[in-house]
Design a protein around this nucleic acid. Structure first.
Length: 276
DNA sequence: AATGTATTCAACCGCTCCCCG
DNA sequence: GCGGGGAGCGGTTGAATACAT
């Protein structure tokens, strides 16, 4: 993109925030409100870039942030939403009052992805894993790597690791209008190819649409294992329409199952809120 | 007790989207 | 319609801490 990151400006502090900086930021925002992050540091007397200020406020200083452990309910909801939305942490965080996208992302990477990996390890190899979990792998000791190899967790003699490559989506901002576009596309897709779905049933587009839409442009699957072999988006010879045809029925079924299991009604209300 | 390893989480980075002129 | 700037997002990093040997 060419534009240099604002943090590269000389003279700006980086790293952990001090109490004094926190106080300055809080005081300023309490007095003037959020926004205008670019100019905020200067006005607030902070030697930080706007991005850094925004992040600090959003992830740590905001008064409505809930500290403490993720409850089992939240844990469950995160898993469900992730199966629906993939790594759209901000959307997921939007359904968990007081939780930040960063917190949920960290929680997922450190707890849930590992747990889910283990739970599916018996069924199939999951070594294609998410890039977000890459670091723990990279940083893992030789000892641990050897252990995993011995357990066959991530490399069936090193074959699987090289055979299948999953391309994860780039970071894209999801705003209301994007979601609306998403939904329109999805509804038209479902309408034409999933005639087994009940007409007018608003739940019919959710899971399928999200997954198809995400795979339409870039190979992606939140449950990557489930889409093994369909990761052909980067192959020009594999037209998107074909992928849709292949996946829609399976995806729709998966979504219906998810809805059945959704005894709290979170998914329905979530879907409704997106449509609103 | 010392050392090595694994985990957690705040913060940074690069990219993309949206808005406005 | 186009381009630039601000804002937001997800991925990644690194330091601190916890845990294991």
């Amino acid at each position: 993109m060419g534009r240099a990151p604002c943090c590269s400006k000389v003279g700006l502090y980086r790293g952990p925030w001090t109490t004094k900086e926190d106080t300055l930021l809080i005081d300023y925002i309490q007095a003037h409100g959020e926004g205008h992050w670019r100019s905020l540091p200067k006005k607030a007397g902070l030697l930080r870039c706007g991005k850094s200020c925004r992040l600090r406020w959003m992830n740590y200083l905001r008064p409505d942030i809930k500290r403490g452990n993720i409850t089992p309910d939240e844990d469950d909801l995160i898993i469900r939403l992730h199966s629906l939305l993939g790594n759209r942490w901000s959307l997921i965080a939007g359904r968990l009052p007081g939780r930040t996208d960063n917190e949920i992302k960290n929680y997922w990477n450190s707890h849930l992805s590992k747990r889910l990996k283990n739970s599916t390890a018996g069924n199939r190899s999951t070594c294609m894993g998410e890039s977000a979990g890459k670091r723990s792998d990279a940083k893992a000791s030789d000892k641990r790597k050897k252990k995993e190899d011995n357990e066959g967790i991530c490399s069936r003699n090193g074959e699987a690791a090289t055979k299948t490559k999953i391309y994860l989506p780039r970071a894209t901002r999801v705003c209301t209008s994007s979601v609306a576009k998403y939904i329109n596309n999805i509804q038209s897709m479902i309408g034409s190819s999933s005639r087994n779905a009940e007409d007018g049933d608003h739940t019919s587009w959710g899971m399928s649409g999200l997954k198809v839409a995400n795979n339409g442009g870039q190979a992606w699957a939140s449950n990557d294992e489930e889409f093994d072999g369909l990761v052909c988006d980067h192959d020009p010879s594999c037209p998107i329409s074909l992928q849709k045809d292949i996946m829609l029925d399976d995806i729709f079924e998966e979504y219906q199952q998810l809805l059945k299991a959704d005894d709290h009604g979170h998914l329905d209300s979530f879907v409704d809120s997106l449509l609103a």
